[in-house]
């Protein structure tokens, strides 16, 4: 154990990569303060800093096991770079989860029926409308029905629809246009109301 304490970082890294798992314990203990101080200075929250610290060393361990460590500088700098990237990831993740402010409104803008879960009645109506539309689609001419089914029921792109039906994309788009016109006409004739 005493011998390990005087070993350089590079020697310990090599030992760990060679299978001596206790070598990483020495490396962690040697650099924990610097790495953790840096993370804490950036994020300023103890728990978050702990998470990023753990995640950083997990990445270090995985990289070392895959032999991805290259001796081109200090070990601590390499670990700090990994921690730095995770901190930046955390900032960017938070940026994407942008905050919606209610401060300038007299009412809660999120307390709206549009954001509420659909009721059982709504779901029944929705299913009924879908089934009625499905019945109308069956009344379309074959080439138009084919395009609607491939696009909306099978989720194919217009390019894929065109390839499957051996026509150009413009023809597929044209058939979809006529299909929608025909569907609207059929809905008016049969008094089918769509309000989804």
């Amino acid at each position: 154990m005493k011998k390990q304490q005087v070993l350089s970082d590079d020697c310990l890294v090599k030992d760990f990569m060679a299978g001596k798992t206790s070598a990483i314990d020495v490396l962690i203990d040697r650099h924990k303060s610097k790495i953790f101080s840096y993370i804490l200075m950036c994020v300023k929250q103890q728990e978050l800093a702990e998470d990023i610290f753990q995640e950083s060393f997990i990445k270090v361990i995985k990289s070392l096991n895959r032999g991805k460590y290259i001796e081109n500088g200090k070990f601590s700098s390499w670990v700090m770079r990994i921690a730095h990237n995770l901190i930046i990831d955390h900032y960017r993740k938070n940026r994407n989860q942008s905050v919606i402010s209610n401060d300038k409104y007299d009412f809660d803008i999120l307390n709206n029926i549009k954001f509420a879960e659909k009721s059982v009645e709504d779901k029944i109506v929705y299913d009924q409308v879908l089934s009625e539309i499905g019945a109308l689609v069956k009344l379309l001419p074959d080439n138009q029905r084919e395009v609607v089914e491939m696009r909306h029921y099978m989720g194919l792109s217009f390019k894929e629809v065109a390839e499957e039906t051996n026509v150009s994309i413009n023809t597929a788009l044209g058939r979809m246009r006529y299909a929608l016109i025909n569907l609207r006409r059929l809905m008016e004739e049969r008094n089918v109301l769509v309000n989804i």
């Binding site: 760990f16 299978g19 798992t21 990483i24 314990d25 962690i28 203990d29 040697r30 650099h31 924990k32 303060s33 610097k34 953790f36 101080s37 804490l40 200075m41 800093a49 702990e50 610290f53 753990q54 060393f57 997990i58 361990i61 995985k62 096991n65 200090k74 601590s76």
Partner: peptide
């Protein structure tokens, strides 16, 4: 690196244990 040896900012024992255990398990 030596400058941080006496730093007051330290990760918890729990975090250190988790990471060290992971190293052994992952190996």
């Amino acid at each position: 690196d030596e400058l941080f040896d006496r730093s007051r900012a330290q990760p918890s024992t729990m975090s250190l244990c988790k990471v060290k255990s992971f190293a052994k398990a992952y190996r």
